[in-house]
Amino acid sequence: MSGIRDDKLQPLTPTLFFLYMLPPIVMDAGYHMPNRLFFDNLISILLYAVIGTVWNALAIGLSLYYCAKLGIFGEPLPLLDTLLFSSTVSAVDPVAVLAIFEEIHVNEVLYILVFGESLLNDAVTVVLYHMFEGYAEMAYEDGIESILPIDYFAGFASFFVISLGGTAMGVIWGFLAAFVSRFTHHVKIIEPIFVFVMAYLSYLSAEMFHLSGILRYITI
């Protein structure tokens, strides 16, 4: 109907989404984030985003697994498959809620709690998804018994490494962007380009080392 041949259409792949579509969305959210309110309520936001998201993913995944064991779905489902699915549906994007909050001018603390949780929630679900995806690949290749206790510990530790590493990457690129922008005030026409280019390069550098590019955008 669009006049484009089917063989010319580009399918939506995870690589296309994570490298080209997600960065500008997260950059826009991080750029317009009220920093002072965010860091003043960081503990509460982390409680909702990290503990709440992990609880949701485990609760949904285990509920689906035991419902399948009871025969509700007609056939059993592997535990890792249900956890992988639950990690994708645990992400919350309260765009409509935030739009209503902004229109009726709710309490600023309530607004930043919902806004900050929605940002960090995406980062947590991406980490959970990659962790469960790795476990599922190991189980399909060598069986569930091939996953050793050290693998579970490594997955738990990788959550902190990816999160803290992405944050550290954002701090480094933030200082670098601030340093470069000191010498661009005479060339106003290219100054905005540095903001976008360095922000995108910081995202790519975080993804290259398998760190959290979303958390890097927030800290930069």
Rank of each mutant, 00 (worst) to 15 (best):
I45T: 05
I220R: 01
A178N: 13
S90P: 02
E141Y: 12
L164M: 14
D122I: 08
L148M: 13
C67H: 00
G143C: 12
M198I: 15
T88F: 08
V97W: 05
F194S: 08
P192Y: 06
D6Y: 07
G116P: 02
A168V: 14
L62H: 08
N56Q: 14
V127L: 14
G170S: 10
L12H: 02
F196S: 11
A136C: 09
I214E: 00
T219E: 01
I51Q: 02
D81A: 13
L47R: 03
L62G: 01
D151Y: 12
S87C: 11
H130Q: 11
D142C: 12
I112C: 01
I51M: 09
L37D: 03
K8G: 00
V109A: 07
S146N: 12
L113N: 07
V171I: 15
I172T: 04
V195T: 11
D93E: 04
G71V: 12
I150S: 15
E108W: 06
L164K: 07
R216V: 01
I214Y: 01
G116K: 03
L77Q: 09
S146I: 11
D28R: 10
M27D: 00
L164D: 02
H186G: 05
T219A: 04
G74K: 08
L37Y: 06
Y129N: 08
A59V: 14
L9G: 00
Y129P: 00
I220W: 00
L128V: 10
V124P: 03
M169G: 04
M33K: 01
E75R: 14
P94A: 10
P78N: 09
P149Q: 10
M21V: 15
E108D: 10
G143F: 13
L58D: 02
T219F: 10
V50S: 03
S158D: 10
L119S: 01
V109H: 07
T167Q: 07
G30S: 07
S2M: 03
I190W: 05
A206T: 08
A178W: 07
G166N: 09
E108F: 09
I112S: 01
P192F: 09
